[in-house]
Design a protein around this nucleic acid. Structure first.
Length: 569
DNA sequence: GCCGTTTTCGGCCCGACTGTTTTCAGTCG
C-alpha cells in the first residue's frame, strides 16, 4: 500500500533532519516522525482519490499539515517527493542503508562519517573490522561488536522483502498479466508460493497460446524499472519497488511438473527426484517419465505427480524437507488449519493505548470477520511511548471494555492487557488490577540482550504466574531488522504446556513470531498455539492470514490451535 | 513541520536501556 511507502519516506526524512544540529531541524524531524507514525497506522489507502485529492481532508488528520498533505499528493501523483529526493542527493552518506544497522542512528552515522569517512554499510564494515570504531569517542568495544553483528544480519536479509510486501507487489502484476488474452495459465511459484515469511526474487509460471506476445506484454508492465532479460521462455524484470520477477513460460501439458519443480524448495525436490528414480521414473521440470521407455507418465497435473510418487498431495507450505515426504508416504500428513478455523483474535490495541480505533470499532471488525470473540490487550505500565495504561487509568479502561461488551451482542469482548515481563520474570503491573482481567498476555520488550539461560528463567517465571494465559511474540524478532532473542525454546515450551499457557504466532507480517520452525517444535511438544494479529487498527486485523500461513508451515492442526475455551476464558 | 491559541508565534512526549561514561548522549519503542 502507498501508505507504507509514505511512512518509510517520512521516517527517512525525519532521520535526515536529525543529522542537522539546529533547533528548527530538530522539531521538523519530530514532525516528520509523527507524520510517519500517523501514516503507517492510517486505516485507509491514500492512493484512493477520496483521500489524496482532498487536501483539506488530509489536513484534518492529526499530525498532518499543509506541507505533509502536499507531499502525500505529490507522491501519489508522481511516485516521488522532490524534497526527499533532494535530501538523498545532498547527503554524503547512504542513510537509508546505514539506518538498517541496529544501535546506530543519525547522530552516530554523522560522527562515523566525519571522523572515519563512513558512507555506507561496506565502508562501515571495513572500518569496524580494523577496530577503529572502538577508539572513537562515544563508541567502544561493545558498540563495535554489535555493529559487526548487525551488519551480518543486514547482509543476510538484504534484498528480501516481507511476504506482505511481496503480495502487495505481485497481486496487481498477476491481474495485469491476466489481461493478456493469449495467457492460458499463471501461477506464482518459489518461496512466494510456499508462503515463506520473506521473499527474494519472485518466480511466476505461465502458459500462453502466443509466447512471444505474452512475454512482450510482461516486460511492458508499467511498474518495470529495468528489463533484465527478455526471451520467449524466460524473462526477468526489476520493478520500481526493488524486487525482481522472473517469468517462465512452459507448455500447458508440462505445467504441473514445472510448477512442482519451480516451487521447491531445493531439498524437497532432491528427495522427490530420488524417490522417482527408485520407482523407475525420472522427474524434471518437463515431467515425470518412465526411465526405460522415456514414455511420459504425468506432466500436466502437479497433484497427480505427488500422488504417483508419494501417495498424497503435499501442499506448498510444507515443502521444506522437514518430514513432509515421509509423512505423505505413511499417510500421516497433518490436516492443516485454515483461516476458517480462526474463531477470534486475542491481541489488539485500541485508542486506550497506541491503537487508532476504539473498542467498538475493533469489535465490529471482529464481527465482520466472523469471529466469536476478541480480546482487547492495550499496553500496561511502563511503555510510555505506547501511551500505556497507568494504574490510575485502569478502572476506566476495564469499565469501557465491559460496557462495550454489554452493548455489542454479536461478539464476546474480553478484557486483557499486554503486560511487560520485567528482568526478573515478574508481571510489571499491580496484581489486584490484573486479577480483574479475563486473562493476561505477557511479553518481553526490554533487556533483550540477556544471556539465554537468564532469559529462559525470566520467561519461565512469567509463565508460572497463574494470571498469564498467552506468551506474546515469544522471541521478539522483527523481520529484516533484528533477530529474536535466544532462550531454551524446548524448556520454555514444555513449561507453557504444563501451565496451559498458549504460545503466540504473532500474525503481523513484520513479526511472524513464533516462526514456522518453532511452531513445529511447539506442536511436536503438544503445546497450545494461538494466532493473534496484535492489531493497532481495524485493517491490521486482516493480517490473520499471514499467521495462518506460518501455522500451516509449522504443521499446526486444530488439535493444537488454542481457542478461548482452551484457555478457560 | 504541526498545532492551537493567549491567532501568525512559541512550544513541541518520554522513559528505559545501552554503552559509554562517572553524568550522559543516542537509540529505541
Amino acid at each position: 500500500m502507498v501508505n507504507d511507502d509514505l511512512a518509510q519516506i517520512f521516517s527517512n526524512m525525519s532521520a535526515y533532519m536529525e543529522m542537522q544540529s539546529d533547533q528548527k531541524a530538530f522539531f521538523r524531524s519530530r514532525a516528520f516522525r509523527k507524520a510517519s507514525e500517523v501514516i503507517s497506522k492510517f486505516p485507509y489507502d491514500f492512493a484512493d482519490p477520496q483521500w489524496y485529492t482532498d487536501i483539506e481532508k488530509l489536513k484534518k488528520i492529526e499530525g498532518i499539515g499543509q506541507s505533509t498533505a502536499e507531499h502525500i499528493q505529490e507522491y501519489v501523483k508522481t511516485g516521488k517527493i522532490k524534497d526527499y529526493e533532494k535530501m538523498k542527493k545532498e547527503s554524503p552518506v547512504k542513510l537509508e542503508e546505514l539506518l538498517k544497522i541496529q544501535g546506530i542512528g543519525p547522530k552516530k552515522i554523522l560522527k562515523l562519517y566525519k571522523e572515519l569517512n563512513v558512507t555506507d554499510i561496506k565502508s562501515l564494515e571495513k572500518i569496524a573490522n580494523k577496530g577503529k570504531i572502538a577508539t572513537l569517542e562515544g563508541f567502544g568495544e561493545k558498540s563495535q561488536n554489535n555493529i559487526l553483528e548487525s551488519i551480518k544480519f543486514a547482509i543476510i536479509n538484504k534484498d528480501r522483502v516481507s511476504i506482505a510486501t511481496a503480495e502487495a507487489i505481485i497481486t496487481p502484476l498477476l491481474l495485469y498479466m491476466k489481461q493478456d488474452k493469449n495467457l492460458t495459465k499463471i501461477e506464482p511459484a518459489g518461496s512466494y508460493r510456499r508462503k515463506r515469511e520473506t521473499v527474494g526474487d519472485v518466480d511466476i509460471l505461465i502458459s500462453s497460446k502466443d509466447p512471444k506476445s505474452t512475454m512482450d506484454h510482461f516486460v511492458k508492465y508499467k511498474e518495470v524499472e529495468k528489463v533484465l532479460g527478455h526471451g520467449e521462455t524466460k524473462s526477468s524484470i526489476w520493478l520500481k519497488s526493488k524486487i525482481q520477477v522472473d517469468v517462465r513460460l512452459v507448455d500447458v501439458k508440462d505445467f504441473g511438473s514445472a510448477l512442482q519443480y519451480f516451487t521447491g524448495n531445493k531439498e524437497h525436490n532432491v528427495k522427490l527426484r530420488n524417490i522417482s528414480i527408485s520407482k523407475g521414473y525420472k522427474l524434471s521440470e518437463y515431467g515425470l517419465v518412465d526411465r526405460k521407455t522415456e514414455k511420459p507418465i504425468e506432466s500436466e497435473d502437479e497433484k497427480k505427480v505427488y500422488e504417483l510418487l508419494v501417495g498424497h498431495y503435499i501442499v506448498p507450505e510444507l515443502r521444506e524437507n522437514l518430514g513432509e515426504i515421509e509423512a505423505a508416504q505413511a499417510n500421516k500428513l497433518p490436516n492443516l488449519i485454515t483461516l476458517k478455523d480462526i474463531k477470534g483474535d486475542l491481541q489488539m490495541h485500541t485508542t486506550h493505548s497506541d491503537g487508532i480505533n476504539s473498542i467498538e470499532e475493533m469489535a465490529k471488525k471482529g464481527i465482520a470477520l466472523g469471529y466469536k470473540y476478541i480480546g482487547i490487550t492495550d499496553h500496561f505500565g511502563k511503555l510510555q511511548i505506547a501511551n500505556a495504561i497507568s494504574e490510575k487509568e485502569f478502572s476506566k479502561y476495564i469499565n469501557d471494555i465491559r460496557k462495550a461488551d454489554a452493548k455489542i451482542k454479536d461478539i464476546k469482548i474480553y478484557a486483557s492487557g499486554e503486560i511487560e515481563i520485567d528482568k526478573d520474570g515478574n508481571l510489571e503491573f499491580d496484581k489486584d488490577a490484573l486479577r480483574q482481567l479475563d486473562y493476561v498476555i505477557a511479553s518481553v520488550h526490554f533487556s533483550t540482550k540477556m544471556a539465554p539461560v537468564d532469559m529462559t528463567k525470566r520467561i519461565i517465571k512469567a509463565l508460572k504466574d497463574p494470571l498469564t494465559k498467552i506468551l506474546a511474540h515469544p522471541t521478539g524478532r522483527i523481520i529484516g531488522q533484528r533477530p529474536g532473542f535466544e532462550f531454551d525454546y524446548q524448556e520454555v515450551f514444555k513449561v507453557a504446556r504444563e501451565e496451559n499457557v498458549a504460545l503466540e504466532i504473532n500474525a503481523h507480517p513484520m513479526r511472524l513470531d513464533l516462526n514456522n520452525e518453532l511452531v513445529k517444535m511447539a506442536v511436536d511438544l503438544n503445546c497450545k498455539i494461538i494466532i493473534n494479529t496484535d492489531s493497532h487498527s481495524i485493517h491490521e486485523m486482516d493480517y490473520m492470514r499471514y499467521g495462518v500461513d506460518v501455522a500451516r508451515r509449522g504443521w499446526l492442526t486444530t488439535k493444537n490451535l488454542a481457542t478461548a475455551e482452551d484457555l478457560s476464558l
